[in-house]
Design a protein around this nucleic acid. Structure first.
Length: 116
DNA sequence: GCACTGACCGGTC
DNA sequence: AGACCGGCCAGTG
């Protein structure tokens, strides 16, 4: 695991429940603005899982990176390994998703909340 | 070190 | 509001 992907995952874990963050913001917070694509790659490689949903909280050890809270900068939910969206999970957490999009103005968390 | 690849971004049309 | 296009950047072989 490289420094960047590691950092990106750490940041992703810090996204508060009920909020979302964009790939671009994470890339920037990870120290490489514009590396949004790389953030996606990192999440894919680590592919932690969306399973998060049916087993929220507790599970002390399991790392569980909430990748579903990471969306595209235009508010669209985006892809997930090409199959399945994170829409359901977002809704389950209280994030309103309309037509596969999230109202960024309302649900996007501030950068300072996810930066180290 | 080169040449792909991709859970992306921003500007244009 | 969509759809397209070129460019980014880190990971991988």
């Amino acid at each position: 695991m490289t420094n960047f992907s590691e950092h990106a995952l750490e940041i992703t874990k810090r996204i508060p429940k009920g909020k979302v963050a964009t790939y671009a913001d994470i890339a920037k917070a990870a120290g490489s603005q514009g590396a949004a694509r790389s953030v996606g790659s990192a999440l894919r490689k680590n592919g932690i899982a969306i399973k998060f949903a049916h087993r929220i909280s507790q599970t002390s050890k399991a790392v569980r990176v909430p990748c579903h809270r990471v969306i595209r900068s235009d508010g669209s939910v985006g892809c997930y390994s090409g199959k399945g969206n994170k829409t359901g999970l977002l809704v389950a957490e209280g994030v309103a998703v309309v037509n596969g999009r999230v109202e960024l103005a309302r649900y996007k968390c501030r950068p300072e909340q996810i930066i180290d």
